[in-house]
Design a protein around this nucleic acid. Structure first.
Lengths: 204, 204
DNA sequence: TTTCGTAGGCGTACGTCATACGCTTACCAG
DNA sequence: CTGGTAAGCGTATGACGTACGCCTACGAAA
């Protein structure tokens, strides 16, 4: 009966995500999002308790794009896992600035849970259950999250690799050589190469 | 010839780390560290260009504690890797609030590089070189970083697991069951169990 | 012994942030 | 047409990082 809401949570999340993509994580402020929406800062608080809740909306908006339909039947379980993991990586990488947020808010995202559910189904199909399945899922998630972060925050690849390649090769012989070799390995290849190690371990 | 410095970088790092351990990451501010040292806020800037540099000192102080001496000869390579990874985990976990900082500043930490150097030596001993060795190190680091973060930020274990175990089991049958099982798996076992998958994959 | 350049240390001030609080305004059921 | 509810806004508070300018302690040179 009172005045109707003029903004959906989705519009909120879209505005925040636009700011995030444009200005980076440091640029994501209540003020900036309010300006993006054309309203005053405090009007935002009619829709959201605090910044944390807004971040949660953004995360769900990002993760909501992940495709969780089971990959085509008939494909072996490891290939299906590769597909699922690849989808998750694509989804997260589409908004790199949101990466730290996905970590902190992941557990409240229905889409994230749906992804895990699909992954668990595949692991079950691979013959895992009980504790082994728990360990497999958590380890898989750990690798995905860690690897993506290395790729985007940890300049072992990118600019940092160059610096490391120039380390004194007497004190760091392996590092220097490895960093030199690392420059020719693309991020994609690196990610899926590491995943391969993991999948081999699961199969054994 | 001018006035001598009254504070070593190490004293700075210790004070900042004390604040970090006591008040958490949100409580780590230039003001708080200055107060910890008994000086005015701006006096800090005589020792450090900005907050970023202070964080770097903290990270090096944390990672500096890691034992990078090669594990006893005669032990097989996979056990030696387990030892090295375990040491790194212990080191990082000793100051959980510093975890996000280690991610962003890791590449500038000599101790972090020393650890990688030691790990590379073991991987070489395991018969890896060239691109495969690059992939192995990066994947290993990815897992360690990701798994530790899941353990400390991602409430799939801890309080979050309980919530997930109460998910509607028609929409999330596997998740609900898995979360129930996960409650009986300790974080330690979980971490090293996942590592095991990885090491098996490396050996194959 | 005095002088002086250098760097240590501090106080103030600015612009940012999240957000508590209270006011005004638009809407709709009676 | 009127009353109640929630939308939306303005103002204010206390945190933050840090630019800037001042005073002070020191030790080499005079």
């Amino acid at each position: 009966m009172p005045r109707p809401r003029s903004l959906t949570p989705d519009q909120l999340a879209s505005a925040a995500l636009a700011v995030l993509d444009r200005e980076g994580l440091a640029g994501l402020s209540m003020r900036a999002v309010a300006k993006e929406l054309g309203m005053s800062t405090m009007a935002l608080y009619r829709y959201v308790d605090d910044r944390e809740e807004l971040e949660g909306l953004v995360v769900e908006r990002v993760l909501g794009a992940v495709d969780t339909t089971p990959p085509e039947r008939g494909v072996p379980w490891d290939e299906r896992l590769r597909i699922m993991v690849g989808r998750l990586r694509e989804t997260i990488i589409a908004h790199p600035a949101a990466l730290p947020l996905t970590l902190t808010h992941r557990h409240r995202s229905p889409s994230g849970l749906r992804w895990s559910e699909a992954a668990l189904a595949i692991l079950t199909e691979a013959g895992l259950d009980g504790e082994r399945r728990v360990l497999a899922l958590r380890a898989l998630l750990g690798y995905v999250i860690g690897a993506i972060q290395l790729e985007h925050l940890g300049p072992l690849s990118g600019a940092g690799t160059v610096a490391i390649a120039e380390l004194p090769s007497d004190a760091f012989p392996y590092m220097a050589e490895t960093a030199r070799q690392a420059r020719s390995v693309g991020v994609e290849r690196e990610f899926f190469g590491g995943l391969e190690v993991f999948l081999r371990g699961l199969g054994a």
